[in-house]
Design a protein around this nucleic acid. Structure first.
Length: 1067
RNA sequence: GGGCGGUUAGCUCAGUUGGUUAGAGCACCAGCUCGACAAGCUGGGGGUCGAUGGUUCGAGUCCAUUACCGCCCACCA
């Protein structure tokens, strides 16, 4: 950049790549991103929702981070000590799954072959690579994070917080071990939470089987029929249930149906009526038999469980619905959530786990099924039942779509399984998080999201926190099963002593296991309930950091082993706002930056993450101890929209519709990406971004369809050449150039950036010899007062909008002002003055000032371009201002946020300017419709009242500059030139003298059309004003407004008729 | 089954507390190589605001019903 002429080398198009590279490193070198506690300033802090290290960022992240950076940059300019703390999440299951899958694909290795340490090493490498990539992406986007404070949920500081939290919760009894049915992922061989499961309809069958009754009395059924979609689970059945009061249950079912029928829409009524008839029929046909079965259940009748040689009880339980199927239901407590509940009510029936962790059948089933995977076992069971005559494929099997749970991570079907798990007790913790929102201490914006948050928490379901993974925070518990009471008490004695000496470091719990004893004998046979032999008890010890190595060795020497499991990823994420600031140490950072100012995230994780951060903050961050203002992690949560593709589907890599922000940045620039995001972030709507492939050969866009988005190669329909996509795997595909996935949605923003660039270029080209100085009011021209008035309003609007997270409003306000007012009017009007020696100095001061303020308002959204221009502006006009002249900051990043000056707002000037704009538009309109070439000068006059004439008078010179038209006269006495075209506006008429130019026919036709239109409006308005109701009941001012409007329209009509007559006469 | 959101121009979307003749960008049409900008400038065409009913002097906006789309939660032997 040559310092003499900062504008000389400016290209006509904004070079976003150059600006990005240059200014990001400039900011970083100056240390603007870094924040330190500073008592002299108010803090403003945001912790990033840490992206998963699973993969690279997509447009959803780009949106999330853009919105954060906009606030961060604005607050920094507003003088806050601003911290944006970045980091990444280890994302336990997701990341391990990705690395494992790759391992299998590329090296044909399973994690068991590699070993725990080996796998973890691999994942760390993956993590390092992706963390670097993610941070690179954030930097490309211009994110002003404090990189010196980058955290990782698995780093030592976060791990310390995890261990402390676990220990405290364990000590308080809020963490316990329980046997629960979990969602078992047989591929990853871990339990996954309900939130990591998705349901997908698959084709399946609904089978009906008969179980023989043992020793039925005469007249009693010899078989009961049960139905299932998972036949193999019958090997784990421990009962069959029938409703304890079938008649009552039918009554209730009917009552419910009738209730629904009453308020059901007509369309659904026939269906409901049919269901009611169905119940009536059941009452006739089936009720006696069900009651008989119920009585048999009470008597303790047993059934023969086919294929197993076991006998299982018939029990009475309300889970069996008499209105469904046969009215009887098989009970498999170890593999079905509802059956599990039945077991809780009927402990004596027991539970039998029939699955190994890899999804094959275990030793609890007859030998011939052992080792089979579920699918094969299912076929075998069905075949054997048929052979036994208990199933008839002709009549007992109906095809059916089954909504099957799948693991989100491995995409394989979930098997419900009974396992020992660690849980966090949620009753109190959930309540505290609910209170935080209901009391208004935490505001969720938009507030409609509060409902889902509260509903979810109100269930207070305990949180299973263990994962059978290797990638994560290993659970800090050492356990030891003990065989008998004596040994147990011996250990307890020892541990009690250790605990008493250091209650802050050691806690223990004894889990007595004999409550499961009766589960072990089912049908007279001993079965394993879980994967280990049940001892007398298990002793669990949790150790906090600071415990001596001897203590741990002591435990380990006595056979205590640390849990193999790791914690749910959300456990560490829940601590993010305080763990990243140093908790549990009493750091200056925690004291200064906590609570953070706002959390910006998407709606998918309001419950999983936001709720847990709130309750963990409340639990962990003691106000007094840490000297913080509040225990809550934040007081505001802003939920932003989701990015969807053109089909309204969420973007994801697995669908192939994901857009890499870097592709957008390369094509449109980071500024356009950011401004586009802000522009699209409205309150209610998700953001639709239709995506296209960009042909690498001809650069043309090809619509992305659901078909072509999953292909490894696509043929460009313009140049007929092939290019590769993210799915390319074969060498021949990979050899092709890659077609980027982009979206035209960012064109608006790119064009806007370019417009700003060129307006800035104009300003810089015209600021030579800039002489700073205050400008007094009497030196201001109309357009100056106008632009200052508008600027004051815009500043206020943008500031208000950002304070309320109305990003789109802020962006649109700036877009409209910059383009339609600053560029289209102010810049055009000031051109002449900049060429005039006498007016130049003031005009330059105004231009520099308005540009300065506009740049600052835009900087949070458009950081690179504004900095680039700011630096150049700083060279020609280092000191600038209108009311006060000040030295400009060395970077726009640290320049003060503009203040809106209400004294500058001038409605009169704005009204005057509005008149000018109307007249100008009228003249241009006439030129266009009469087809007069832009080069041909026009003459025009305006008939209006004296006041309007006075307003327009000072604007005279601008008409020739902006419309190549010379005003002849303004005033009430103005007469229409004989051959003229006119536009009638409210209160004034514009006549363009068209002698020698006019196309009379066209003008006559036009006038006729206009008259017709006006007549229509007038008729409508007269009708309205004749309505008594309107005149009497509407507010007087509204009625008056209508009357004025009518009078105005009538005047316009009269004028139009006059012109028409004259035109017709002149023909 | 429960909840939330959406439906406005060919496409993507704005539309404040109900109040003149409903807006923008893209696309389209006509005309502009005027020294900031063709990623631009000037002008233009295009919408019975998903449907029905209601409240109101007045409804894109409020209420009810309804259709369709999307998302979330729960459940489905």
């Amino acid at each position: 950049m040559s310092s003499d002429t900062p504008a000389a080398d400016l290209p006509k198009q904004y070079d976003h790549a150059a600006a990005q590279e240059r200014w990001y490193s400039f900011w970083e070198q100056r240390g603007y991103f870094h924040s330190e506690p500073n008592a002299a300033r108010q803090p403003y802090s945001i912790v990033i929702p840490p992206p998963n290290v699973t993969g690279a960022l997509h447009l959803g992240h780009a949106l999330n981070n853009t919105l954060q950076d906009i606030l961060i940059r604005q607050k920094r300019m507003q003088g806050f000590e601003t911290l944006w703390l970045p980091g990444v999440d280890h994302a336990g299951i997701a990341t391990q799954a990705v690395v494992e899958r790759r391992l299998l694909q590329e090296e044909k290795l399973t994690r068991h072959e590699l070993g725990r340490q080996g796998l973890v090493d691999r994942i760390w490498k993956w993590k390092d690579a992706y963390q670097a990539r993610i941070i690179g992406q954030l930097k490309q986007m211009g994110c002003s994070c404090d990189w010196q404070r980058t955290r990782f949920t698995l780093d030592e500081q976060c791990a310390r917080a995890v261990r402390e939290t676990f220990f405290q919760l364990f000590k308080e009894g809020k963490i316990y071990r329980g046997k629960r049915l979990v969602n078992w992922d047989t591929f990853l061989q871990t339990a996954v939470s309900d939130d990591e499961v998705f349901h997908e309809a698959v084709k399946g069958n609904f089978w009906h089987f008969k179980y023989p009754v043992v020793d039925p009395k005469p007249g009693e059924p010899t078989h009961v029929t049960i139905a299932t979609t998972r036949p193999e689970t019958m090997l784990g059945d421990t009962a069959v249930a029938v409703h304890p009061d079938p008649s009552g249950a039918l009554d209730q079912a009917e009552l419910d149906l009738r209730q629904r029928l009453a308020d059901a829409p007509a369309k659904e009524k026939p269906d409901l009526e049919k269901q009611i008839d169905d119940i009536a029929e059941r009452r006739r046909e089936m009720l006696p038999r069900l009651e008989q079965l119920r009585d048999m259940a009470r008597r303790g009748v047993k059934l023969e469980l086919p294929l197993t040689g076991r006998q299982i009880p018939l029990i009475a339980d309300q889970w069996a619905k008499p209105e469904l199927g046969s009215g009887c239901v098989k009970i498999t407590p170890a593999h079905d959530p509802n059956d599990y509940d039945v077991w809780q009510r009927h402990e004596e029936i027991g539970a039998i786990n029939i699955l190994n962790v890899d999804g094959t059948l275990n030793d609890n089933v007859p030998e011939k099924y052992r080792g089979l995977v579920v699918k094969k076992a299912r076929a075998a069971v069905v075949a054997d039942l048929e052979a036994a005559g208990l199933y008839n494929p002709e009549t007992d099997c109906e095809p059916r779509d089954i909504d099957l749970a799948h693991s989100d991570r491995s995409k394989t079907p979930i098997e419900p399984m009974l396992m020992d798990q660690w849980f966090v007790k949620m009753d109190q913790l959930a309540q505290s998080a609910m209170d935080a929102v209901t009391s208004g201490q935490v505001k969720i914006i938009p507030d409609r999201y509060a409902k889902g948050y509260l509903d979810w928490l109100s269930e207070k379901r305990d949180w299973p926190i263990g994962r059978q993974l290797w990638w994560g925070h290993r659970i800090p518990v050492w356990s030891q099963p003990v065989a008998d009471k004596y040994t147990c008490e011996h250990f307890m004695g020892q541990l009690e002593e250790l605990h008493k000496a250091r209650p802050d470091l050691i806690a223990y719990r004894v889990e007595l296991d004999h409550d499961l004893d009766n589960a072990r004998k089912v049908g007279g046979v001993e079965y394993q309930v879980a994967k280990i032999e049940r001892p007398y008890a298990t002793i669990h010890v949790s150790i906090n950091d600071g415990a001596s190595q001897q203590t741990i060795r002591l435990l380990e020497n006595q056979g205590f082993l640390q849990s193999e499991d790791v914690l749910d990823t959300w456990f560490s994420s829940a601590l993010w706002p305080h763990s990243t600031l140093g908790w549990p140490e009493q750091t200056e950072e925690l004291k200064y930056y906590y609570p953070t100012s706002v959390l910006i995230t998407n709606r998918d994780i309001i419950t999983l993450w936001v709720a847990r951060m709130i309750l963990m903050g409340l639990h962990n961050v003691d106000k007094k101890r840490y000297g913080v203002r509040d225990s809550l992690p934040f007081h505001e949560v802003y939920i932003h929209p989701k990015i969807l593709d053109g089909y309204g589907e969420g973007m994801s890599k697995s669908k192939g519709n994901g857009v890499d922000p870097l592709d957008v940045i390369e094509k449109f620039g980071a500024d356009a990406l950011r401004f586009g995001m802000a522009y699209l972030t409205t309150e209610t709507q998700d953001v639709r971004v239709p995506v296209e492939f960009e042909c690498p050969h001809c650069q043309k866009l090809i619509e992305q369809t659901k078909q072509n988005r999953v292909l490894p190669r696509v043929k460009c329909k313009h140049c007929q050449k092939d290019f590769s996509t993210q799915w390319a795997e074969k060498a021949e595909d990979k050899a092709l150039p890659r077609g980027a996935v982009v979206s035209e949605r960012f064109e608006l923003a790119r064009n806007f950036c370019n417009k700003l660039w060129n307006a800035s270029r104009f300003a810089l080209l015209n600021l030579e010899g800039f002489d700073p100085g205050q400008v007094s009011d009497d030196e201001l021209m109309v357009e100056d007062s106008w632009v200052l008035s508008r600027l004051s309003t815009v500043t206020q609007q943008v500031t208000d909008a950002l304070a309320e997270y109305r990003y789109a409003d802020a962006a649109r306000t700036l877009y409209d002002f910059a383009w339609d007012e600053f560029c289209s009017f102010y810049v055009e009007m000031v051109k002449g003055r900049l060429q005039d020696e006498r007016q130049r100095v003031v005009a330059q001061r105004l231009v520099a000032h308005v540009l300065d303020v506009l740049l600052r308002l835009l900087h949070p959204m458009i950081p690179f371009l504004t900095e680039d221009v700011w630096q150049r502006l700083g060279q020609v006009a280092p000191e600038r201002g209108v009311d006060t002249v000040e030295q400009a900051a060395e970077s726009i990043m640290v320049a003060p946020w503009p203040e809106s000056d209400p004294a500058r707002r001038d409605p009169e000037i704005e009204a005057q300017f509005g008149r000018f704009q109307e007249v100008l538009r009228a003249v241009r309109d006439i030129r266009a419709r009469q087809g007069v070439a832009p080069k041909t000068p026009l003459r025009f006059s305006v008939r209006c009242d004296a006041a309007t004439a006075n307003l327009l008078d000072p604007m005279k010179d601008y008409f020739s500059a902006m419309a190549n038209a010379e005003p002849v006269a303004f005033g009430p006495e103005v007469a229409a030139p004989p051959l003229s075209a006119n536009v009638t506006l409210s209160g004034l008429e514009v006549y363009v003298d068209l002698a020698g130019l006019i196309d009379v026919e066209a003008e006559v036709a036009r006038k006729r059309q206009e008259i017709e239109k006006l007549t229509g409006f007038i008729a409508a308005k007269e009708k309205k004003l004749q309505q008594k109701n309107f005149v009497e009941r509407a507010p007087a001012e509204v009625v008056q407004k209508e009357r004025d409007s009518l009078a105005d329209l009538q005047a316009q009509l009269a004028a139009a008729r006059e012109v028409l007559e004259r035109l017709a006469g002149g023909r």
